[in-house]
């Protein structure tokens, strides 16, 4: 049994209209997604803007209503009605994209970090202060930070306050939605290092959402590539970057800027080739509605939504 197993997940948002304001159509933000995450590992979720990454993450943690499908966390289907009462909020936490707006500016760090503790544990005032100080120490902030306000911290420090809050209840799974996208490279490094450290220390599992492939590659053991609500490819990090199969993945990988200026021309040429292939073959790789096909195994660890015909095994 996998630690986290997503089976044929659908999240559709109704589009209302007409005089009666009835549902006339729906946005199929997540449209048949399945994947499994192992405990203690990092699963990277990549895809262009609007492909459904955040919606997938929010559905897992229960912030978006699931239209159909299963979210099986440690053996319990969180989507099933009889499990709606099941309290997994302790075990599953989310880190949000924007360290500037995700913390309440009017609250002190103590109140921000202690909030989940207050919901779940009855601690005395001094126990609470002690726990928060411990948590802050873990994320590398001094205990005096407790009485400060978010604006008194840098972006990286603020993101770490968000992480301190997320790990307060010792969760098992953290959904990190673009946790470093708003940060400077140097601060990014700090937060990414830190996330890996506490992962080891607490045996945390991450669902790591990002559109920065360099960072996803650095962080992830396994990666799923989303396009229009569906997976086009899934595999170990090595599979995706060394042997991309789907035309969309190839285009994505080709678009990553190369950090070596000497490769500039080669990279440009490669990108143009991939772009041509993409234009030529787009129709073959998607069905008549523009949706990706079902994933099929091309190796033990590697799956891709390839067209039926013309596949080299």
């Amino acid at each position: 049994m996998a630690f986290l197993e997503i089976n044929d997940l659908h999240v559709h948002f109704p589009i209302k209209g007409g005089i009666l304001n009835r549902t006339i159509d729906s946005v199929k933000a997540v449209n048949g997604v399945s994947f499994q995450v192992e405990q203690g590992k990092t699963y990277g979720l990549v895809g262009e803007s609007g492909s459904g990454k955040t919606t997938t993450g929010r559905a897992i943690i229960g912030l978006n209503e699931i239209t159909s499908g299963q979210v099986i966390f440690e053996g319990n289907d969180l989507a099933a009605t009889e499990n709606k009462k099941l309290d997994v909020k302790r075990d599953v936490q989310m880190i949000f994209q924007d360290p500037y707006s995700s913390l309440n500016p009017k609250k002190r760090v103590l109140d921000i970090v202690a909030e989940p503790l207050r919901n779940y544990e009855k601690l005395s005032r001094s126990q609470e202060v002690e726990r928060v100080a411990d948590l802050l120490e873990k994320v590398g902030l001094s205990p005096e930070s407790i009485f400060k306000y978010p604006h008194e911290f840098s972006g990286g420090q603020r993101q770490r306050i968000g992480i301190a809050r997320a790990i307060a209840l010792k969760p098992k799974l953290i959904i990190a939605d673009e946790p470093v996208s708003a940060l400077d490279v140097s601060v990014q490094a700090q937060v990414l290092n830190f996330m890996r450290e506490i992962q080891k220390e607490l045996n945390l599992t991450y669902l790591f959402i990002s559109h920065d492939l360099g960072i996803v590659k650095h962080m992830s053991d396994r990666i799923g590539i989303m396009y229009k609500g569906r997976f086009v490819e899934e595999g170990d990090t090595e599979d995706i970057f060394s042997n991309p199969q789907h035309i969309y993945t190839k285009r994505l990988v080709a678009a990553i800027p190369d950090i070596n200026p000497k490769n500039r021309d080669a990279q440009k040429k490669f990108r143009e080739e991939v772009q041509l292939e993409y234009q030529k073959d787009y129709g073959r790789y998607f069905d008549e509605k523009g949706l990706a096909f079902n994933l099929r195994n091309i190796s033990q660890t590697h799956l891709a939504a390839l067209p039926e015909i013309g596949v080299v095994e």
Partner: peptide, 30 residues
């Protein structure tokens, strides 16, 4: 600049991004 960065700040910046070729465990933090 990429091959022979000299200023400590430039070198630190270059060291803090994930390098796509090798798997680093830790990124440099300024």
């Amino acid at each position: 600049l990429f091959e022979q960065p000299r200023h400590p700040y430039t070198r630190s910046l270059l060291n803090s991004v994930p390098n796509s070729d090798e798997k680093q465990d830790k990124l440099h933090v300024i």
